[in-house]
């Protein structure tokens, strides 16, 4: 042992240089898009999954208890509000049922092809990126459950992000609010195409840039996925336009989009599996 230590001390400078070269090489190699993560990364992530799962569960339990105590105070008012809401929702449901029937009839009439064609896999959020420069979450489903890199992740509220790396029992999802994220979107009211990007300074909103000069976006417009990419299915809600900012001498603009998904309170998400994957 002492001989090894002596040797390390004698060859200190060349060893440090070698280590720096290896580190720079590794950073360079991992900076490009990879189809598979390394064995060490997979092992590290899988080993941490049970700890993260226990910890996130415990944290969620505590937060729910605190929330419960807080809501007890306003329970009476909230109850009255909710009763009112139930009545209005019941009326809305009746109206929507009528629309649904009408829609089904129209689809049949037009021989409309069902484009959904996807299975969904429920996954639990067990971790988040500790970095303030990256917006990623860790899910408790990996390639053992059929998850693959590039799959879309959504909730019933809207788009969450894309799976960027997968280990056996966990996967990492790049959120749409991340600076590296860009998604094809569609203005629901006009059908105009926009590019929805993350990386906003507040890390809570998105930026939507028009893809053509004639695109019109107004505050209150809903942006949905365009379905032009292979990642996201069509018509999944992304967010609502809250502001439109002019750019380049008023020749262009960028719309500020507030996502429908609350990324700070994500607990469960849905991974969109291709239909073939579910059948095989």
């Amino acid at each position: 042992m002492k001989r090894v230590l002596d040797m390390i001390l004698r060859w200190k400078v060349p060893l440090i240089i070698l280590l720096v070269i290896i580190m720079v090489g590794t950073i360079h190699y991992t900076s490009t898009s990879r189809l598979k993560i390394s064995l060490f990364e997979g092992l590290g992530r899988d080993l941490l999954v049970p700890f993260q799962w226990v910890f996130s569960r415990a944290q969620r339990f505590v937060l729910h208890q605190v929330e419960k105590v807080q809501t007890l105070r306003t329970l009476k008012e909230r109850n009255a509000e909710l009763e009112e809401l139930v009545l209005s929702l019941q009326a809305e449901v009746l109206e929507l049922r009528n629309y649904k029937r009408e829609n089904e009839w129209l689809r049949e009439a037009l021989d409309f092809k069902n484009e959904r064609g996807h299975d969904l896999l429920v996954a639990e959020v067990i971790g988040r990126s500790p970095s303030n420069w990256e917006s990623t979450i860790i899910l408790n489903k990996g390639f053992a459950h059929g998850v693959e890199q590039g799959m879309a992740v959504v909730t019933n509220e809207g788009v969450v992000g894309t799976v960027v790396s997968v280990s056996r029992f966990s996967s990492t999802v790049l959120l749409i609010i991340d600076a590296q994220s860009a998604t094809g979107g569609l203005v629901q009211s006009t059908g105009d195409l926009v590019l929805v990007e993350g990386g906003q300074a507040d890390r809570e909103t998105l930026s939507a840039r028009p893809l053509s000069r004639d695109t019109v976006v107004e505050v209150g417009d809903v942006i949905v996925t365009s379905g032009l990419s292979t990642i996201y299915p069509k018509n999944i809600p992304i967010g609502e336009v809250v502001a439109v900012e002019p750019r380049q001498h008023n020749l262009s603009f960028a719309a500020v989009v507030r996502p429908f998904v609350d990324f700070n309170r994500l607990e469960y998400v849905l991974i969109v599996l291709p239909q073939d994957n579910g059948e095989s």
Binding site: L48, Q52, W53, F55, Q59, L63, R128, P130, S131, N132
Partner: peptide, 23 residues
């Protein structure tokens, strides 16, 4: 290990002006 678990699973609730600590 504890810090790593805390950082990745436990601190989303602890934020300061919208930013997480780097444990």
């Amino acid at each position: 290990l504890l810090t790593l678990v805390l950082q990745t699973a436990g601190v989303p609730g602890i934020v300061f002006f919208g930013f997480k600590p780097q444990l």
